[in-house]
Simulated scan of single mutants.
Amino acid sequence: MIASRLSNDQTAKLALDTNSLNGLRQSAKDGSPAAMKEAATQFEAMFINMMMKSMRDATPQEGLMDNQQTKTFTTMLDQQMSQNLAKRGVGLADVLVRQLGAQQMGQQALAIGADGVGAGAAAPGIKGLPTAMNAAAMYQGGAAAAAATGKAPPLAATTESGRVQAPHVRAFQEKLHEHAHAAEQTTGVPAKFMLGQAALETGWGKRMIKNADGTSSNNLFGIKAGPNWKGKVATAVTTEYVNGKPQTRVEKFRAYDTPADSFRDYARLITNNPRYEKVIANGGDAEAFARGLQRAGYATDPHYAAKLTRLIKHSLA
């Protein structure tokens, strides 16, 4: 029923959709008050939807209704509610309309020199759209192009919940984004979940296990070197929990030539080892993914799942 309403109501096109963004870009270029109002309303709907998603993520999701089907329909409901609220208005659209109007007047002034010839170049981006909408439009366009080529989509300017990432988080993500995307194609686990785990295991890359010569082992996931491992090995002091109590031990860990090798080995581990079947099955939910890893015995820290969930949701999601 919701899908039918969305298809029949042209004003219900989501700004998060690539085609809708392209339409908004063309409308905004017209410069008419109606076009600017439509663009601003769609952006307001996107903003409301992001807030609702953030609130959903912060609410415990347990019980009989906690399943993928329920989450899918809840997402659709939130999108429809966002559109309905945006039509009534919460004030953001009016502010954007004023900004769009001011930008249009400024561009016209720049375009008219003393002799009637253009006196300046327009600012980079999509003409007629405010900065935040520009970022969303460029990200969506880049994501569509990346999907067509199989490459990793560009990183968004903010997280899905609208937060700006800390510099060290952004740097870590930019460095490993391509490798995480490749592992996502193999495992089905979202790249940000694996980036979160790598961040937890290495302290955002600051506590990477070292080789004997002081170089990095590139072991991003703390995978130990068991008797079947035939590759390079790095030795390090680590903390293991036995019956809930921490113990300091010296363990052997796998070492890799590159971070990409670490992601590939991690992908093989969780896809080929039967222990992690349920982890893969719950790859669409951060908390279920983290709990699955802990139940499967990935780490002995009794708080591993909680730490990983918090890191993913508050730093990367």
Rank of each mutant, 00 (worst) to 15 (best):
Arg25Val: 05
Ala45Thr: 07
Ile280Gly: 02
Thr235Asn: 12
Arg291Asn: 15
Thr271Asn: 09
Arg291Glu: 05
Trp229Thr: 15
Thr248Gln: 12
Ala93Asn: 08
Gly118Asp: 09
Leu6Cys: 12
Lys13Arg: 14
Gln140Ile: 08
Lys232Trp: 00
Glu277Asn: 05
Ala152Phe: 00
Leu96Glu: 14
Met51Ser: 09
Asp257Arg: 11
Asn282Arg: 09
Ser217His: 10
Gln79Pro: 01
Asp17Leu: 11
Phe43Pro: 02
Asp115Ile: 14
Ala40Val: 15
Ala123Val: 05
Gly101Arg: 07
Val250Pro: 03
Gly222Asp: 02
Val242Trp: 01
Ala267Pro: 13
Glu44Ser: 07
Ala40Ile: 12
Lys175Gln: 13
Pro154Gln: 08
Ala86Met: 04
Tyr266Glu: 08
Thr248Tyr: 00
Ala102Gly: 06
Leu85Thr: 11
Ala111Lys: 12
Asp115Tyr: 07
Leu100Glu: 11
Gln68Lys: 07
Val164Gly: 01
Gln42Thr: 07
Leu6Trp: 08
Ile209His: 09
Thr235Ser: 12
Ala144Asn: 13
Ala109Gly: 07
Leu100Met: 15
Asn19Thr: 15
Ala119Cys: 13
Ile209Phe: 08
Leu293Cys: 10
Ala288Lys: 13
Pro302Gly: 11
Asp257Gln: 13
Gly89Val: 09
Ala93Glu: 08
Ala143Val: 06
Asn8Gln: 15
Leu200Val: 11
Leu16Val: 09
Gly63Glu: 03
Lys37Asn: 09
Leu24Glu: 00
Lys29Ser: 07
Arg25Ser: 07
His177Met: 08
Arg5Trp: 06
Trp204Asp: 02
Val164Tyr: 01
Gly125Leu: 05
Val97Met: 12
